[in-house]
């Protein structure tokens, strides 16, 4: 009797399992065909640190104070500056060793002049390791589309909530196309 019960129990459990896989067979696949389709990145996605520029002059806002360089745990930021005539530092070059950057956001948070931002770009690989040292021009270009150092404003959460509202309203449109974890139930 025991054997029969065992057989019955086994059959039921196998049928259940087959049912689950069949149910999933009918679901829409969640695969994102990457180079053809792209994930919808959320606000505040961390791709690579980039330099913010002044909207009027188009020049980098960085004042070459060097705080970010000191904050980076890996010491990836090198700042080359000269002392200008009015005792203000003028930024010559700003180098980021992007190949080693762990995108931790510490440099962006540390900048007191709101001149660093996390850009959304993520396809930055290169065949030539030397090209992975990003210089000022490239970093400024990467940071061009952004206005604030952080979409959520670490220091001013209240203001951030108000500011991020438009982004929140824009969300549903973006969600119509599922991201990597998109669901077709």
């Amino acid at each position: 009797m025991n054997t029969l019960e065992d057989i019955y129990r086994s059959s039921v459990s196998f049928a259940k399992g087959l049912g689950v896989t069949f149910k999933n067979f009918l679901r829409k696949p969640v695969t994102l065909q990457y180079p053809d389709e792209r994930p919808v990145l959320p606000v505040g996605y961390r791709g690579i640190p980039a330099l913010l520029s002044d909207k009027e002059t188009g020049k980098a806002r960085c004042t070459a104070c060097g705080i970010c360089a000191r904050t980076c745990p890996l010491g990836l930021i090198k700042i080359d500056s000269v002392l200008g005539p009015d005792k203000k530092r003028i930024l010559n070059d700003y180098t980021l060793e992007a190949g080693r950057c762990m995108v931790c956001n510490l440099c962006v948070e540390s900048c007191p002049f709101d001149s660093l931002v996390m850009a959304n770009d993520y396809e930055l690989a290169d065949y030539d390791p030397d090209k992975l040292y990003f210089h000022k021009d490239r970093l400024v270009e990467l940071g061009r589309p952004y206005e604030h150092s952080d979409p959520f404003h670490v220091d001013e959460p209240k203001k951030a909530a108000a500011e991020a509202k438009p982004a929140g309203e824009a969300k549903p449109a973006g969600e119509a196309k599922p991201g990597p974890g998109g669901e077709g139930a």
Partner: peptide
């Protein structure tokens, strides 16, 4: 992946 989406939304990574 769904949880990672949530994390990505809140933390950026």
């Amino acid at each position: 992946e769904k949880i990672l989406d949530l994390f990505e939304m809140a933390t950026g990574a």
